[in-house]
Amino acid sequence: MKADYILLAVDNPAESANFYQLVFGATPLELSPGFALFEMNETTKLGLWARKNIEPKVIVDAGGSEIAISVEGRESVDSLHSEWIRKGVTILQEPVAMDFGYTFTGSDPDGHRLRVFTPDGI
């Protein structure tokens, strides 16, 4: 068994797909009024599912999830931070050293958190 899909409840899959296409530079594998699907890497896919269509119903009103994206080195963290600011991504946390490494956090249109980090020692 393996966990290879991340599914996020979103208000508008097309709007969220536009956001992730801009941020990740990826084209959706699938796009319909109720769902969008992206390939994140060889083993992981990101699904954006219309909140109103999910069964059983989603209890949390918005956001609540975090996608962690590992990169190599502080320079990569800083570079992505600058790029996301240029692209208009809402930044929730400026680059900072934390217990696990150097990181910053952005937000998608539904309040899901996107954490970019490099582990300590890299």
Results as ranks from 00 to 15, higher is better:
residue 2 K to Q: 11
residue 3 A to D: 01
residue 4 D to S: 12
residue 5 Y to E: 03
residue 5 Y to W: 06
residue 6 I to F: 13
residue 6 I to R: 00
residue 7 L to Y: 06
residue 7 L to E: 12
residue 9 A to H: 00
residue 12 N to A: 08
residue 14 A to H: 05
residue 18 N to Q: 15
residue 20 Y to C: 02
residue 21 Q to R: 14
residue 21 Q to D: 10
residue 21 Q to W: 01
residue 22 L to G: 04
residue 26 A to N: 12
residue 26 A to K: 15
residue 29 L to Q: 15
residue 30 E to G: 02
residue 31 L to C: 03
residue 33 P to I: 04
residue 34 G to K: 12
residue 36 A to M: 10
residue 37 L to K: 12
residue 38 F to L: 06
residue 40 M to Y: 11
residue 41 N to G: 04
residue 43 T to C: 05
residue 43 T to M: 05
residue 45 K to R: 15
residue 45 K to C: 11
residue 50 A to N: 14
residue 51 R to M: 05
residue 52 K to F: 01
residue 54 I to Q: 06
residue 54 I to P: 08
residue 57 K to V: 04
residue 59 I to A: 11
residue 59 I to F: 07
residue 62 A to T: 12
residue 65 S to Q: 07
residue 65 S to H: 10
residue 66 E to L: 12
residue 67 I to V: 15
residue 67 I to Y: 06
residue 75 E to A: 13
residue 76 S to I: 01
residue 77 V to P: 01
residue 82 S to L: 12
residue 84 W to D: 08
residue 86 R to G: 05
residue 87 K to W: 04
residue 88 G to V: 07
residue 90 T to A: 09
residue 92 L to D: 09
residue 93 Q to T: 14
residue 94 E to Q: 14
residue 94 E to G: 03
residue 97 A to N: 09
residue 98 M to R: 15
residue 98 M to N: 10
residue 99 D to F: 06
residue 100 F to I: 08
residue 101 G to Y: 00
residue 104 F to V: 01
residue 105 T to L: 09
residue 105 T to H: 07
residue 108 D to G: 02
residue 115 R to F: 02
residue 117 F to L: 13
residue 120 D to W: 05
residue 121 G to P: 10
